[in-house]
Simulated assay, not measured.
Amino acid sequence: MSSPVQLIPGAISELFASVSETQVLTLGDRYGIMAALLDETLSEEEQRAINRLLRGAIKGRIEVIKI
């Protein structure tokens, strides 16, 4: 089965860098994470980056905003 979502190469690393710098997870960032999770070809490094972002949000180190 092919993936319905095609990620831009480097999108996860850019997202990770942006959120790490601002400590804010926007609605657009969350959609990016959702799209990445639907992609079955994520590398282990990309999966770890997403997990770190989600753990940061759960622990309150990253602010989740509605914008």
Rank of each mutant, 00 (worst) to 15 (best):
A35F: 12
D29I: 01
G10S: 05
M34F: 11
E21T: 10
I8T: 14
L25M: 13
E44W: 06
T41H: 15
L42M: 10
V19K: 01
I50E: 04
S13K: 14
T41Q: 15
G28P: 02
V19P: 00
A35C: 12
T41R: 15
L38H: 12
D39C: 14
R48G: 07
G60M: 05
L53K: 02
A36D: 08
E46D: 15
I33H: 00
T22H: 09
V19G: 00
R55W: 04
I12V: 12
E40P: 09
Q47Y: 09
V24E: 13
E40K: 15
D39L: 01
V19N: 02
I33A: 03
A57G: 05
L25I: 03
A35D: 15
A36M: 07
S18G: 06
R55V: 10
K59H: 10
S43K: 08
I12F: 00
D29W: 00
Q47F: 09
V19F: 00
S13G: 05
S18W: 03
T41N: 15
R30M: 11
I12E: 02
G60R: 07
D39A: 13
R30W: 00
L37V: 12
A11Y: 08
T22F: 04
S13P: 01
L54C: 09
K59P: 00
L15C: 05
R55C: 03
G10Q: 05
Y31E: 15
L42E: 10
E21D: 10
S43A: 07
E46H: 06
G60A: 06
N51L: 13
A49I: 02
G28W: 02
I8K: 13
E40S: 15
I33K: 01
A36P: 07
L42W: 08
I12M: 02
L37F: 07
A17G: 04
G28M: 06
E45W: 07
G10M: 03
V19W: 01
Y31L: 14
L54V: 13
A35E: 12
G32P: 01
A17C: 06
R52Q: 11
E14P: 00
I50G: 02
E45L: 11
R61L: 09
A35T: 05
S13Q: 14
A11I: 12
N51R: 14
G28H: 08
K59W: 05
T41F: 10
R52M: 08
E40R: 15
I8S: 12
L53Q: 03
E46G: 04
S18N: 10
Q23D: 08
V19A: 01
Y31G: 04
L42V: 09
L38A: 14
G10A: 06
N51K: 14
P9F: 02
R61I: 07
S13F: 08
T26K: 09
E46A: 11
R61W: 08
K59L: 10
I8P: 04
G28Y: 05
I33S: 02
L53P: 01
E21A: 13
K59C: 06
L25F: 04
I58E: 11
L54G: 02
L27V: 11
S20W: 04
L37G: 10
E14H: 12
S13R: 15
L54T: 09
A36F: 06
V24W: 02
I33G: 00
S43Y: 05
A49W: 07
V24I: 15
F16S: 10
L54W: 02
R48E: 14
A35I: 04
L27Y: 12
E45Q: 14
V19M: 01
F16V: 05
I50H: 04
G60I: 06
V24G: 02
M34C: 08
A11R: 13
A11S: 15
Y31N: 12
